[in-house]
Design a binder for these strands. Structure first.
Length: 560
RNA sequence: GUCCCUGUAGCUCAGCUGGAUAGAGCAACGGACUUCUAAUCCGUAGGUCGGGGGUUCGAAUCCCUCCGGGGACGCCA
């Protein structure tokens, strides 16, 4: 149920009908009805909806826009739209449509009836996969992972509400070069901690967390691994460490409110031979050539200016090769749409990835990559380096402990993914009182309090069907209803533009409208029928705030 | 050098699939609690939308160019 889209659709079809009627009567000439827009004007004085059809058609019809608007209005079957108040021509040729409040007064009944499901759009029968975070299991989760987590999970929720069938996936990079380095680092630490004089590899992972991991291994095996053949010892340590790291990632993300449907291992792609197979497939199709001992993938995109290696001269496939196999597998699993949330530093991989899936026979727009700008971490004015090697950065689990899940998630998703996020730890900790998330949660808690007060005073909301919502006439009440009516449309647009921050903004605005209402009007102890109507208004406001917060992964407390 | 993101109020940012008089929060100033939570509300002030061209009936939004900030350009992932 999407009231705004529904109303826009009604108006749009009335205008189209009017135009076709006018052409039949010879009042206007054109080939086809253009793609006009029904939009919500910024200015209240310009009506509830406005249409630009007349201006867009002016050139083709060779008529003044206002004259065309005149014809459209005359031809509109106004009586069929019961909510219609009046239609005006304004400015350069806008058709402004004013509705009476009947449609707004229906909103509470709709919302109350569908409750937790308010916000959902019609099912689309489209399977979409969102892959996000996919952090290397060689270290702790950093702020970039955190932002990716908040954005990816929120986006997945939005898509679900927008009518898609959604799966969340984490790609575990448990193969390749970095695992070799990981192994070298672990082994060196193990030998060092068991009293051997070995050098730590120059490019190894020096993080403290790795030392802890090795200590855990020693707890289990003591120094018995020193006696084993090198290869055996290494594999055992790696296996053990990976298991621990993945468990840590899983737990931390769960604490962050994120639960995946699938954890997908890169290693299995290599072991099952799929990586080799996909290279063979591409070779058969003529996309692969050999040069200097390596196999190269021929790029078809004009935007990609050079080809990329899939098989190194040493016979090992590259990360890119595994990624091609991985994406093929995604589509073979039946996803119609695949979304990856990547850091902006990976933007150079987008086109080659699209080239690859196209070479495999899929459409390049079946893959969308949401690039998010990176997070820079500050303590006051000082930039905190985010390096896994030094291990000095703050990890996601520490952040959650410091700020709480709610504030952290809201903060990471509040801004557009396109904008770089400067995260000042000191400020975030100091400002926790002013954090917008509390403003929203406070609105929810206040509404809950109203119902507690009403309950204590023995006030009960009557059967919803007997409530007269037309008593809600105050500007603050109408503004709230209008905003609530927007919710499903806001979700639809957020999904379409992959813009999770829109929901954060939406619920912030909604909370603001509630606070304005609350300060101006009373719910309890007003005239009985108005009290009922306002109780219902409060109920649906609470439902909408709660649903929006749940999309963001933020809790809706009843007390504060 | 090529490519991506970005530049909007003192600060942090919305708005960018073109629409009418560019918004919010913070900070500043002035107000509002004997009644449902003052973690709130109301008001005032604050702008060459980085500069310059262009397309259009109409540009913060699209195109070109220049300037500033961030990032990517590996047989690393």
């Amino acid at each position: 149920m999407n009231p705004i889209q529904h109303t826009k659709g009604l108006i749009s079809s009335k205008i189209t009908e009017a135009l076709e009627l006018a052409r039949k009567e010879g009042l206007i000439k054109y080939n086809s009805v253009p793609d006009f827009v029904i939009e919500v004007p910024r200015e209240k004085g310009h009506g509830d909806f406005a249409c630009n059809a007349a201006m867009i058609m002016a050139r083709e019809a060779k008529m003044a826009p206002r004259q065309i608007a005149e014809i459209i209005i005359k031809g509109m079957d106004i009586n069929e739209l019961e909510q219609l108040e009046k239609v005006e021509i304004a400015g350069p040729g806008f058709i402004n449509i004013f509705l009476n409040n009947k449609w707004l007064h229906k909103i509470p009944f709709i919302v109350e009836q569908i409750g937790d499901s308010f916000g959902y759009n019609e099912a689309r029968g489209c399977k979409v996969q969102v892959e996000f975070v996919s952090a290397n299991p060689t270290g702790n989760l950093h702020m970039g992972n955190a932002r990716g987590g908040a954005i990816g999970d929120t986006l997945a929720n939005i898509l679900k509400y927008a009518g898609y069938e959604v799966e969340r996936e984490f790609y575990i990079n448990d193969a390749g070069n970095q695992i070799e380095i990981f192994g070298d680092s672990l082994e060196a630490r193990y030998l060092q901690l068991t009293g051997h004089d070995v050098e730590f590899p120059e490019n190894g992972y020096a993080g403290q967390d790795l030392i802890q991991t090795v200590k855990n291994i020693i707890k289990q095996y003591g120094d018995t691994l020193c006696e084993l053949p090198k290869e055996k010892r290494r594999n055992l340590i790696i296996e053990h460490a990976l298991e621990e790291k993945v468990a840590y990632i899983k737990k931390t993300l769960l604490d962050f409110g994120i639960e995946y449907d699938v954890w997908y291992s890169e290693k299995t792609l290599h072991e099952s031979g799929v990586v080799q197979q996909v290279i063979d497939t591409l070779q058969e199709k003529g996309y692969i050539y050999e040069q200097e001992g390596a196999l190269w993938f021929k790029t078809s995109s004009s935007e990609e200016d050079k080809d990329n290696v899939v098989m190194r001269a040493n016979g090992l496939p590259t990360y890119f090769a595994a990624d091609i196999a991985y994406h093929q597998d995604k589509f073979q699993r039946g996803f119609d749409w695949v979304i990856n949330v990547w850091g902006a530093d990976h933007h150079g991989h987008v086109n080659r990835m699209k080239d690859a899936i196209e070479a495999l026979g899929y459409k390049r727009d079946m893959l969308d990559v949401l690039l998010m700008q990176l997070v820079r971490l500050y303590r006051g004015k000082d930039l905190v380096r985010m390096s896994k090697r030094t291990g000095t950065t703050i990890a996601l689990d520490e952040l959650i402990e410091e700020l709480g899940k709610d504030a952290a998630r809201f903060f990471f998703v509040m801004r557009s993914p396109d904008s770089q996020l400067d995260f000042d730890l000191r400020l975030a900790a100091e400002q926790s009182q002013d954090n917008p998330v509390y403003y929203i949660q406070y609105a929810h808690a206040r509404i809950c309090s109203i119902f507690r007060q009403a309950g204590a005073a023995g006030i009960k909301m009557p059967a919803v069907s007997s409530i007269d919502t037309s008593l809600l006439k105050e500007p603050e009440e109408l503004a709230l209803l209008r905003k609530i009516a927007d919710f499903p449309e806001e979700i639809r647009v957020s999904a379409q533009t992959l813009a999770p921050h829109r929901i954060a903004r939406y619920v912030l605005d909604l909370a603001g409208l509630f606070h304005s209402f609350y300060n101006r009007h009373r719910v309890i102890n007003v005239e009985a029928e108005l009290q009922d109507a306002r109780l219902l208004l409060m109920k649906v406001t609470r439902i909408t705030i709660k649903n929006a917060l749940s999309i963001l992964g933020v809790s809706a407390p009843e007390y504060m």
